[in-house]
Write a protein that binds this DNA or RNA. Sequence first.
RNA 1: CGGGGCGUGGCGCAAUUGGCGGCGCACGUGCUUUGGGAGCACGAGGUUGUGGGUUCAAGUCCCACCGCCCCGACCA
Length: 570
Amino acid sequence: MRLSHLFFTTLRDDPTEAEMPSHRLLLRAGYIRQLGAGIYSLLPLGFRVSKRVEQVIREELNAIGGQEMEMPVVHPADLWRESGRYDQIGPEMARFKDRGERDMVLAMTHEEVVADLLRDVVKSYRQLPFIVYHFQTKWRDEPRSRGGLIRVREFVMKDSYSCDRDEAGLDSAYWAHHAAYTRIFERLGLEAVAVSSDVGMMGGSLAHEFMVLNPAGEDVLVICQTCDYASNRQIAPTVAETPAAEELLAVEDVATPDTTTIDTLAAILDIPSSRTAKATFFVTGEGVFVVGIVRGDYDVNETKLVNAVKAVGGLRPATLEEIRARGMEPGYGSPIGARDAIVVVDALAAASPNLVAGANRPGWHLRNVNVPRDYTPDVVTDIANVREGDACPSCGGPVILRNGIEVGNIFKLGTKYTKALGAEYLGEDGARHPIVMGSYGIGLGRNVACIVEAHHDEKGIAWPEEVAPYPAHLVAIGANKEPLVLETAERLYAAAQAAGREILFDDRDESPGVKFTDAELLGMPWIITVSPRSLAAGGAEVTNRATGERGVRSLDDVTAFLEGRAPLVA
RNA sequence: CGGGGCGUGGCGCAAUUGGCGGCGCACGUGCUUUGGGAGCACGAGGUUGUGGGUUCAAGUCCCACCGCCCCGACCA
């Protein structure tokens, strides 16, 4: 591709909107352009990268027996009513009517369509198992997009679906995907760690997320320093020593004016925060009031709390009025005297004696509150967030917390969708069984962004060879001073083309500085410079973009590389 | 949805008290230049996000709306 004809432009200045390196560089180098919040066009360069990522995924999925297909972006709403998600999912799903006034939706994911196909196509156990997948556009009207391609509303996702006779089959398909994902992210140049994760609204019994560590990541990961334990903090169990038993003292009032936080409470009473109880207040999507109690030195983990009370529609923070209506006082709250509320107490908090808790009166707390002597929990379970340095649930070693970006996920769905839609097969036993599904996703654009996050320097992008839009960037310098330069560059370019290898050729009438700067910004793995100087030195100068290694190679060596016959070394 | 910020040419920015909308880069033409974002000359490009209001006069003040970014809530 000649740069003189490439549909792109580079920007000299950083766009102010872009804060993450990947966003900034992809914009500046002319890979992407924004159309609206969370909506991006891929320019030819960006599209080529995306296609190369796609190809890596395709190869690895084919290797585990995946069959590529394509499902629609627009679905009849009735299909989503069948699974129940039409009413479950909020405004993040786009809904509209077609000209016949029929309710339609834009695809957020494709479990329903797969299940619909299964009930049509699969009759017998002989047709199972199989894996199907496609690369298809999803629309998810996120409350807030951010970080360029990291979190968008419209994106192309590889989603695959395993269809099995039974749990054992699902298990094997699940771990096959786990292995395939490991290979995919390795080939993409991403250091992804597989962490256990919450199944969320997808339902199912087991899930992993593949995470790339990044300070801007939206998930918090619990990673063991000693063993290979890694989990999303949403579901990471807390492991704490059982507090030493103490004589249960009598409850007594203590005046604590203007003391509505754990920090100030611990300070005013001169006690560690672990001697206090923290009360948090939520309301489920169905309007049920939930009080969550953790010890003062921990935070409430909302995912665990949602799961503890099986909160339909999730949880939202309660309003002050809602809290007072239940007989509690914000800032001085505790379940003592609470009414019309489900009380969930963290296991550690329940086991900790003589805590300071709210008196439900402004300016007052209570000393020596004990469970269940002083109030009765409805649920006692782990609802606390793991902290940095806490014990690993697997080996007991200290854990660290890191932020991560989710680049892929795998879910054991089970029969949730096939039961709802009636996708059954006739078994060897002559009975009908629901097909057992798994669902597995990788977002293309987010992976492209994460690759840039991991492979760039102050000058620009440095693509790994596996995903680079072009293997080399050919630069001709001093062409109008020495005609042989342009001749040579043209001959190298033609040789690559003739061999079926497309490379980037900067044939523009630009100054050397512009060409070098752009080449480094665009980030092809090899920059090949032809100039009077390089010709005098015996060929072309080759620079490895990632390592910075540079050397002069003979035109034969360079030609062999460009034709794909031999690797290049600097 | 809550909090904060910002909308002026493709990008980055300026415009005093309300007083003729400018600058750098990028872009076009010509000449010069060619190993690190070249020089000179000429030139094109704007409904200052939208709508209303105040005023002799609005980029600037007021109201409403729209859009975008950041933090939070949220995230199949």
